[in-house]
Design a protein around this nucleic acid. Structure first.
Lengths: 198, 198
DNA sequence: CCGGATTTATAGCCATTGCTAAAATACCCC
DNA sequence: GGGGTATTTTAGCAATGGCTATAAATCCGG
């Protein structure tokens, strides 16, 4: 009743299940036994054999997150205008963080904001991913200055930080129980700060 | 070398030490042994005797937080104008979340955003405290409508959610390493959304 | 139908988790 | 100085943490 060749086991589906658990419980609140149970893996050794240790699994899960539930982030940058990109990003966040098919909030924010010394690596990985998102937004806004969509005196770095702050605040609000409609309204208010050509 | 009457042990100072640990490591990332070490208590039983269990200690720590490092929040509401109150609140957050004498961020946000089922009580307590802060802000903004500082068609509840979102986003930004100056700039941008008397 | 490769499962590592009963100690008041 | 009280200590509970060595079971290629 044991063993055999690789059963072409669907590791993507398993990662999706692991994502749900990490998303809901955070890195430190998730035990290996929680993961094996959720992933349909019977024993811890099988999990370690397939995905490495907890940190490595978490990293793979974050990749899967970016390609799945958070794909809207990358897609937002494809909008023709920078303003459209920011709107797609933030309204997408309002939807994604309240999707009834997933835990509330954003794993990148709530996965490991504060944690014990033993989880610093996970925390730093999340910090880096958040910084990467902000940097991508800044790049898009810089381009908008070049194309004159934004005035020459606009501050792309400052605006990127502001809208990233909105994004992260939305994640906290969602984790606290805010409704989807309330979050969309927050986005509308936030967009008020968009620079007008004086 | 053991025992004795109550040594009028300074429990406030001990709570301040516990606050530092919970603040930096979160509820679930903090072990009782971390707390006893930081608080200058030799044994776990002494801690339980003095402060109850972990949840109760956490709650006491949050009270101490509200009266100490986060006192600026209550004080912000004393500003003569609602706009002044919001500015005091958010600029105060920019300072407090980057105070070199304390861990970065806000314990109310990063204490237990996502956690295991065993820490739900702590999570719910933080959620409630965040909601209470938002409710206080809403009340202040409703008063501003009454006094005509805000236009009659302003939405106090929506504005309170927006500025609370900024507040919480600032906490995440601070935890991620943003500088104090960057946070103050975010606040300035956020205040752009303040309703103007059309 | 067997040998070799591979993945399972069993069992257990060592450390720590939050928490507590019982015993030992030190203090204050009389 | 003795009695009573309060506290600290020692020791340990049952459970779990992440992780792994060993061994059993299964499949494939031949």
């Amino acid at each position: 009743m044991a063993g055999g060749r690789p059963r072409t086991f669907d590791s993507e589906a398993a990662l999706d299940r692991a994502l749900e658990v990490f998303w809901r419980q955070g890195y430190e609140g998730t035990a290996i036994s929680d993961l094996t149970k959720a992933m349909g893996i019977n024993n811890a050794p099988s999990l370690y054999n397939a995905f490495g240790n907890k940190e490595q699994l978490f990293s793979k899960v974050l990749d899967r997150y970016a390609d799945g539930p958070a794909r809207y982030i990358r897609e937002a940058f494809d909008q023709p205008t920078a303003r459209g990109a920011v709107e797609a990003l933030l309204h997408g966040a309002a939807d994604a963080t309240t999707d009834p098919d997933h835990p509330r909030g954003c794993i990148t924010v709530q996965g490991a904001l504060a944690c014990s010394p033993g989880a610093q690596t996970a925390r730093e990985e999340l910090t880096a991913r958040r910084a990467a998102g902000e940097a991508g937004l800044r790049a898009r806004l810089e381009r908008a200055v070049d194309t004159k969509e934004l005035p020459a005196d606009a501050d792309p770095a400052g605006l990127a930080r502001y809208f990233t702050t909105i994004y992260q605040g939305i994640a906290v609000q969602a984790a606290g129980g805010a409704t989807r409609e309330q979050l969309h309204q927050i986005v509308d208010t936030a967009m008020t700060a968009w620079p007008s050509r004086a």
